[in-house]
Design a protein around this nucleic acid. Sequence first.
DNA 1: ACCGGGGTAAACATCT
DNA 2: CAGATGTTTACCCCGG
Length: 685
Amino acid sequence: MMVESASETIRSAPSSQNGVGSLSGQADGGSGGGGAGAASTAGGGSGRDVAAGADSNGEMSPAELLHFQQQQALQVARQFLLQQASGLSSPGNNDSKQSASALQVPVSVAMMSPQMLTPQQMQQILSPPQLQALLQQQQALMIQQLQEYYKKQQEQLHLQLLTQQQAGKQQPKEALGNKQLAFQQQLLQMQQLQQQHLLNLQRQGLVSLQPNQASGPLQSLPQAAVCPTDLPQLWKGEGAPGQPAEESVKQEGLDLTGTAATATSFTAPPKVSPPLSHHTLPNGQPTVLTPRRDSSSHEETPSSHPLYGHGECKWPGCETLCEDLGQFIKHLNTEHALDDRSTAQCRVQMQVVQQLEIQLAKESERLQAMMAHLHMRPSEPKPFSQPLNPVPGSSSFSKVTVSAADSFPDGLVHPPTSAAAPVTPLRPPGLGSASLHSGGPTRRRSSSDKFCSPISSELAQNHEFYKNADVRPPFTYASLIRQAILETPDRQLTLNEIYNWFTRMFAYFRRNTATWKNAVRHNLSLHKCFVRVENVKGAVWTVDEREYQKRRPPKMTGSPTLVKNMISGLSYGALNASYQAALAESSFPLLNSPGMLNPGSTSSLLPLSHEDVGAPVELLPSNGSSSPPRLSPPQYSHQVQVKEEPAEAEEDGRPRPPLGPPNPSTVGPPEDRDLEEELPTEELS
DNA sequence: ACCGGGGTAAACATCT
DNA sequence: CAGATGTTTACCCCGG
């Protein structure tokens, strides 16, 4: 106890580094700083750790490498998104946001995690005109950012391509040809993607893109709302004092446009701005006029090379220090030559881009929905109650969207399709549909912890994403553990198996093992919902659904308003999930993803989502009073014993105590009944 | 300001 | 004895 004082410092550090689940938590970004090391290796923060790991290993399997790259890329991406938020919200930075200043916080908040701000709250905070402005701002920003990002990615790819071409001279031509081709295809793909996205936006009325303005759709955007100066902020993180740089813009002469004639537009000078790696620089160029520049601005290096900055190689996962550009080039040619690895890395990068793009689309969609809900937007009352379920993968998603729309009292509907429709096709099968939805659920992260997160559904949807991205899942340890346990046929796992599940399902948990394992154990012991059962082969952990349910409600039960908010706002994801599950249970394309396939998982997943969602909702009516959550027995016992073998059967439901351990859950058979009954129906249907 | 939930750290006890 | 597994306590942070 007292000892604490000493460890205090240590403790504080980790907390920041954890970047924890909620977006808000991560916002602090690199902070970890000093103490980062405290807990364990890797900090959550910078890619440093990752890189370090890679370096030290010298030889890693391709898979690992890929993983590293991906992690890094994702981190970067994440940072990018976060920066958006911080940039917007940071009071210090903006100046030019005329009246906007007041809006900034809300904007960022809304963008990053809508759940943090319920529609009601928004309404309270903002006046209609403000909302309007907000909307515009956001749209403009999103678009700009999206484009910027695209551009960067293109540059990067292009650059790599060029570099490799160079290097390639020394290599066999045949191989080279193919690879280049692959690269080009990637480029093209990306361009198409962005084009598509722009089209979507356009369709949504977000962008008034004119054919000719290709060079700068950005300009055509509602710039009014957004000042050029905003951009720099977006890109610069904490901001260091400006750096000169950016002159070199376009030096490379990459002409993405050339290749991408079709696409969009980014004629613009390809400036240099590689991956938005760690906090970038800030160059405070107030004068900057074009968004583009801004982006470039954040990359300081004068001599610049998109992949070179801060004296180090910016190739994903590399970070090798290079004295000067020359050395860097050399390094680039040697270390990042055209080979499978590089190609794979590029691919990863592509995915990152896609993810971001999706995320962006989702956010904008959500915004629209929010606006629509608030009547802020005249929105086209297109009756789109008709579920479009063309694509298997998207079907579930579309349903979600639809239901969301439906849920809006006013009946206003937003163009949900925007994101979903167009993007979907592009996505890679496996990852695609799944991550696609990520947008929805993902956002919910912060809230998901609080309210019952439809973890199963979200997990199902983003399974691939979490599996490969070093992103902390937005679920609590308890919910994850439960998920892990419920996913198994017999609903029980040993500690070690739980660990394995974590590492298998989440890239994030492949690091800092000591930390999260401790957390897992801590949670297992702490929560009554986890019951330890002695087994032949040792002890296994099971979940007591009743107990689990008990602990969630509290939050919801609280105030009616809260609940309401949830429904209107949150329902977006949560409720939808339930609808989705209910409606499309049978078809859960998402489950196709490799990882989730086991029979058990499927069964549990559906139910779970129900439950997660269901619990809260139901509570509303049932227990108006706040306190005892337990009063309201969650009807959905999702997990329900999916057919377990009688022998051990006890799992969750009632008969849990197989081997003798006392089952705390003795609570009541009657309840169990409910649970059971519900389940079967669902499943069977 | 208070409270509760979640995360992390760490000490300690047991078991293997 | 070391390491894995459990339990418990303390503290921090965040949001209501």
